[in-house]
Amino acid sequence: MPPPLVALCQFIQTKLKPTNETVRVHIPEEVFGTDHDTFLLCEHILQFASMIEIGSTIIVVYMRYLFDYLKMTNMVNLVVLVDPGQVSTQSRTLSYCSKHLSDRMKQADGDQFYLVPYNPGGHWV
């Protein structure tokens, strides 16, 4: 494991986990179409660092970072990001997922690429 990742895991284990703290990540409306917060649990961060299968929360935080990078490089208008928690049939009905995806596509320009994380099964959300 790279030294910065080891340091992060040690911080999580010694500071955050004993107090059951979470890490709040703000997701502005321009990322997924709705303004909201997501919360990383200590377990999410440790799973990511340990290369264990991750859930949609980590993917959402990565997509938030990706959005900032695309914005910084003036490429944000090329991509539409779709929140994996909104299209997961693990936590939503198929009709809800379809409507959300349809609504998201209606908001976008026809020349954009869509980044829609999808796993047909075998994962938790």
Rank of each mutant, 00 (worst) to 15 (best):
L66P: 09
M75P: 06
V80E: 07
R64T: 15
I54R: 10
E53P: 00
V80F: 03
M75E: 15
Y65D: 13
V79W: 11
N74F: 11
D68G: 12
L66Q: 06
V79C: 03
M75A: 15
N74C: 10
V61D: 01
T73K: 05
E53I: 11
K71H: 12
L66D: 03
L66M: 14
M63W: 02
V61Y: 03
D68P: 05
M72F: 13
V76H: 07
N74P: 05
K71I: 09
I59Y: 11
M75H: 15
V61N: 00
E53R: 09
I59W: 05
T57F: 02
Y62F: 15
V79P: 02
L66S: 09
M72T: 08
V61K: 09
N74Q: 12
V80K: 07
R64K: 13
T57Q: 07
Y65P: 00
M72N: 15
Y69L: 12
I58W: 10
Y65R: 11
N77P: 00
M63A: 07
F67D: 05
V76E: 08
V76T: 03
I58N: 09
N74V: 07
N77V: 04
V79A: 01
S56Q: 08
T57L: 10
M72G: 09
G55N: 00
V76I: 14
N77Y: 14
M72W: 11
I52V: 14
V82E: 06
M75W: 04
L66E: 08
I54E: 00
I59G: 01
D68N: 12
I54D: 04
V60A: 02
V79Q: 03
I52E: 14
I58V: 15
K71R: 13
V61P: 07
V80T: 12
I54K: 02
I52W: 10
N77Q: 13
Y65I: 13
Y62E: 14
L81N: 06
M72D: 14
L66H: 02
N74Y: 09
E53Y: 02
M72R: 15
L81G: 02
Y62P: 03
F67Y: 14
R64Y: 12
V76M: 04
L66C: 11
Y65G: 11
V79E: 08
R64C: 13
L81P: 07
G55P: 05
L78T: 09
E53H: 08
V80P: 03
L78V: 05
Y69K: 13
V76D: 06
V61I: 11
Y65H: 14
L78D: 12
L81E: 07
T73C: 08
Y65C: 13
E53C: 07
N77T: 11
M63K: 00
M75R: 15
I54V: 14
F67P: 01
K71M: 00
R64G: 10
I58C: 12
L78F: 14
M63Y: 08
V60W: 04
I52S: 09
V60M: 11
L70G: 10
S56K: 01
I52P: 00
I54S: 06
D68V: 01
L66I: 08
V76Q: 08
L70R: 02
Y69F: 11
V82G: 02
L78S: 12
T73A: 05
M75C: 15
L70E: 00
I58A: 06
L70N: 05
E53K: 07
F67K: 08
M63P: 00
T57H: 03
I58E: 08
E53M: 03
G55V: 03
Y62V: 10
D68R: 10
Y62T: 03
K71P: 05
V60Q: 08
V79Y: 06
L70C: 07
I58K: 01
M72Y: 15
